[in-house]
Amino acid sequence: MASVVPRKSHNLRYKTLMAWLFTLPGLVVQLVFGWLPVLFAFVVAFQRYYFIKDPEYVGVNNFKEVVADPLVITAFQNTLWFAFLSVGLTFLMPIFVSILLMEMSRRTIRVMMILWFIPVASTAGIAIWKYMYHPNLGLLNGILRGLHLPEQKWLDDPVLAMFSLILPGIILFGPGLIYIAALQNVPEELYEAAELEGASFWRKIWNITLPRLRPIIAMMLLFSVIGSMQVFELPFIMTGGGPGYATTTVVMYIYSLAFGAYNLGKATALAIVLFCAIMIMVGFQRRYFPENIDESSENARS
């Protein structure tokens, strides 16, 4: 007895030590580059930065400037409009395509998946579309001209510009990797049972597939809302925020405040405002679209 207890505690201590040793590098990186900048944002937002001089505290001045700035309102409007359009027009398609894809034979699925996921580097993809939208040399206007339809100004038209940013996502529809992975986990017996009951194609999707995908859909919806609220590269490369301010999103404005106007404090204050806005939306979504799998399956059962 006496010999076992100390050995066990030694073992336990050794295990704990190893556990922390394994965790340490990740812990440090996450602390320094994950959390510290977020916390520090709340310091920067109350400061005014100079390049040669030391920073000074300015109280809530930066937030006052953010509130007074009419461009902030425009940027938020644009961002919300972009998020709405992009989630509304491109969110459902991958789910639908993934479900349909599962009907194909295994070999077809493999071939299609490989062709579908041939990657194009992201900045390269944006450049391709910028070329497509070119008023004279672009393919889209070329097609319109060929069909004797009126040419469009695409990225130059303040109304059309935002649609043009989303259009590639609509045209280039495809399945979602994560949905495919999830669909493979749906037990086939459920469909067979439904088939015996004589359920139609759509009814099966509605009653069996979608409830099963629900947690994944909820999670993806959350990510795509957060993601589209943070959109930067697409408008930055495609339009540079123009024409006028029609595609200036909040993150683009943060960038141009910080690295164009060199107003780091105001940029961070705006980032905090964006942060709060996203957090509110996330809270809202969590309340109305719970992603807890047990809860949803219980709902399905009852």
Partner: peptide
């Protein structure tokens, strides 16, 4: 949202 950390991370 990661964008909150753009400026602090740069600093």
């Amino acid at each position: 949202p990661g964008q909150i950390a753009i400026v602090p991370r740069f600093l």
